[in-house]
Design a protein around this nucleic acid. Structure first.
Length: 469
RNA sequence: GUCCCCAUCGUCUAGCCCGGUCCAGGACACAGGCCUUUCACGCCUGUAACAGGGGUUCAAAUCCCCUUGGGGACGCCA
């Protein structure tokens, strides 16, 4: 049997960066489409020329690319498709489904305020609806919407939703400057591109009946709708810039892995039993609009951080080294040897929640001259360590195979001879080698650092202690 | 204000459609413990929720109604 191919779209407007909310909408569209082997279209809604920027467009494309949300068609730019919109408005005008309205913005504003003051819905009162006016300077084109009856649809996520047509008014289709409005452009494009599933944010529920009225006016097939719940800030208010770093690219810069973001976003509003972690392939396989919840949710950054830490631990050293290098370079380290970076990754994986963490944790490996944390310096680099450090130098000197195993062996006899526990020497040595009191295991770190640097740093600590006392 | 949508631990959620197996399960966070050369990882344990009120029923987190609370929309923005 031949089934209609599913066609979806993601239509961001380039008036700002791609944030968590729109990204999740894009993700849901993408997952749904990939699962159904459909076609996913990217469309840039830039009809608001004043607020749209090329930078924003680039940031959106870059974000999608970083997340691996690829599209099959587009990007289409609405600013380049005015012919399509004009044709539809003209058709509507021709068939008497639309009319010219001469009311000025000031008048409308005033009447809206009056209506609201009287406790009425601030909608257009239909003044020009039956006047049979022609086009004029400053006039707009409005849809002649049904004055009574109901407009309803079955939302895949929310179920049946209905509106009384009395609640809706004659929305503007074409502005006085000739440009199409959002509603008209969306419907014209969705029809033109063959979109049959519209998956978008909850905030569009109220727009849906208006758009359905346009579909009805030109007798086009209405798509299936799925309205996904909004994402709220911690204060339960709509997500906005004031809630912190919302740009997807900002998360990239904070050292998050794309999968952590994707997984985290997928689980906000959607669930699959008790499962928390999903690979991209699993998401495609298991995602379903039916399992998307109905209520708005608060984005939980801590959970995403945990997920990120998890993905870091699970990733290969090779993969992480590639990802880490740019962060190290940003910290000022140049000419990095990837083999060396990979070794440091091995020791840092379990203790890094982000790539930024990891770069910070790795710094001591690459610095030519480390500095001591004050606390560690005071507590551990004391005169009573001088003898032990010097003994260590003498014992390290002759080691030819400088690795964890040989070091552990050497330390065992060293501790026995001096009648001390590892504890006694480990922390001071850690400060001497890394400058810090927290670091990877002492033996693994020594191996990665290499014999020369270890000796050099112990000597530096010895000199430092002498100078202090 | 009017209309639309929603309501389980602090947060994300399972369970709700098809009432009993739920004195409500998982995850993050938090607290305690174990492991341990530090920090982590890992493992174990704990704190913590069916918004309120009415119905229906032998039985309601699950069905119905109301209230309250939250969100959204009401633009020549998208």
């Amino acid at each position: 049997m031949s089934q209609e191919q599913i066609v979806t779209r993601f239509p961001p407007s380039p008036t700002g960066y791609l944030h968590i909310g729109s990204t999740r909408t894009a993700l849901f569209n993408w997952l749904f489409t990939r699962q159904k082997h459909g076609k996913f279209i990217l469309r840039i809604e830039d009809t608001d020329r004043a607020r749209s920027t090329d930078d924003a467009t680039q940031a959106i494309l870059k974000s999608m690319e970083w997340l691996g949300l690829d599209w099959d068609e587009g990007p289409y730019f609405q600013s380049e498709r005015y012919d399509i919109y004009n044709a539809m408005v003209d058709l509507l005008l021709l068939t008497g489904q639309a009319y010219h309205c001469h009311c000025s913005p000031d008048e409308l504003d005033q009447r809206r305020k009056d209506a609201q003051a009287r406790g009425l819905k601030p909608k257009y009162d239909g003044k020009c609806r039956d006047l049979g006016l022609g086009p004029a300077l400053g006039s707009v084109v409005r849809l002649k919407a049904p004055a009574s009856g109901i407009t309803q649809f079955h939302d895949i996520i929310k179920g049946p939703i209905r509106f009384n047509n009395e609640e809706l008014d004659d929305l503007i289709l074409r502005r006085s400057d000739g440009s199409p409005t959002y509603h008209l452009a969306v419907v014209a494009d969705d029809i033109n591109l063959g979109i049959n599933y519209v998956i978008r944010g909850d905030d569009h529920v109220n727009n849906t009946p208006r758009q359905i009225q346009i579909y009805n006016a030109i007798e086009a097939t209405v798509p299936r709708y799925a309205h996904v719940p909004m994402i709220l800030g911690p204060d339960r208010a709509r997500l906005s810039k004031r809630h912190g770093a919302m740009s997807v690219l900002a998360y990239r810069d904070m050292g998050y892995l794309p999968n952590a973001l994707l997984n985290s976003l997928a689980r906000l509003g959607w669930s699959y039993g008790d499962q928390e972690r999903f690979t991209k392939e699993e998401l495609i396989e298991k995602f379903s609009l039916e399992n998307v919840g109905k209520s708005a949710g608060v984005f939980n950054p801590e959970k995403m951080l945990d997920l990120n830490a998890h993905y870091i631990r699970e990733s290969s050293d090779e993969f992480l080294a590639d990802k880490l290098i740019p962060f190290l370079e940003q910290s000022g380290f140049a000419d990095l040897d990837k083999t060396m970076v990979k070794k440091t990754v091995t020791t840092l994986k379990a203790r890094s929640k982000t790539l930024v963490d990891m770069a910070e944790g790795a710094a001591f490996y690459f610095q030519d001259d480390i500095s001591y944390e004050q606390k560690g310096d005071e507590k551990f680099l004391k005169p009573d360590m001088l003898d032990l450090f010097e003994q260590l130098e003498r014992r390290i000197e002759p080691i030819s195979i400088f690795n964890q195993m040989s070091l552990e062996k050497m330390f065992a006899s060293f501790m026995e001879e001096n009648q001390i526990k590892l504890k006694k020497i480990a922390q001071p040595l850690r400060v001497a080698l890394t400058g810090k009191t927290a670091s990877p295991g002492i033996f693994e770190l020594m191996e990665v650092l290499g014999k020369d640097r270890v000796l050099e740093r112990i000597q530096k600590a010895v000199n430092h202690i002498r100078k202090k006392s």
